[in-house]
Design a protein around this nucleic acid. Sequence first.
DNA 1: GAATAATATTTTAAATATAAAATGTTTTGC
DNA 2: GCAAAACATTTTATATTTAAAATATTATTC
Lengths: 165, 165
Amino acid sequence: MAQPELATLDHESRIAADDHQSIRLWLRLLTCTNLIEKRLRSRLREEFDTTLPRFDFLAQLERASDGLTMGELSARMMVSGGSVSGLATQLESEGLISREPVPENRRTFCVRLTRQGKRRFSEMATQHELWVMEMLGCLNASEVDDLMASLKRLKSCITATEQGA
Amino acid sequence: MAQPELATLDHESRIAADDHQSIRLWLRLLTCTNLIEKRLRSRLREEFDTTLPRFDFLAQLERASDGLTMGELSARMMVSGGSVSGLATQLESEGLISREPVPENRRTFCVRLTRQGKRRFSEMATQHELWVMEMLGCLNASEVDDLMASLKRLKSCITATEQGA
DNA sequence: GAATAATATTTTAAATATAAAATGTTTTGC
DNA sequence: GCAAAACATTTTATATTTAAAATATTATTC
């Protein structure tokens, strides 16, 4: 009974079904990301009176002990140069980062965490990690590994299809 | 040789390792979502001179043939009421949606696609589906199914840890 | 049934996003 | 070496986001 029905699914129908499956996967991915992002956003506001972009800015610097240029920050944070510029102005005025000119290339700046920025970030990072653990922690190690592998493959699929079409 | 080393990983170390793995998973998820979102955003701009939130607004209505209230739209789109309100004002002025009062409850509106909105959305949806296929299409059916299952589990993990902590 | 609480939406204020133009610096090509 | 191109950043103008206040309606409670 099942086989004849399957046989009636022609190539076009199957393609259409796959289409919908792709869309469904994309929507599910988006939902998960939105849920996590919103939770982190509200916790950062409640507990540290800050925002996700500002946290992310500091996090990128924490990972790069030699400092980063504005362009590198823009690429790693995946936001426009204008955004990075505005965030940097704020964080600099709060004393959390420094923006020093580079003698060899006067077009660029080297952005670093200040001592205060490091201290402040580490307070937030500890909590941030707990919040993420809280949300992802019920996945066991092999589930996490599976997801990591699948998403790695997905990422390479996405970047394989180049932007300029 | 491997067992003794594993044995030296005490509970705390293993927890720390898991923490980082959770963060890495979260960042990878975010990267994938950002890549897809940016691509869709720029394509929608280039080809239809519109934005992702506006497309999403219409898409939610397309799926709900009986129309939706502003609050339902807000929940399904996972954005604030204020955003929905602003988007509705725009889309209404462009003639793509209608916002009719509901006699039984004068607080709410019933939002629907207009004929023009349906036509416009279907043009965009066709392309949108192709763009998503383009990015996710290199995953085979079983990879997609695996991801769907993993993300479903992830979603239930996230929502299981309730917001109000 | 009047006062209070809950609900649905819009408006407001502040922050953030982008694209594109402007500015200043370095590199390239002749 | 000078003009043109490429590069890195900031500024500008516009659009979007959110949280919270304001508005209006409905439901509850005593």
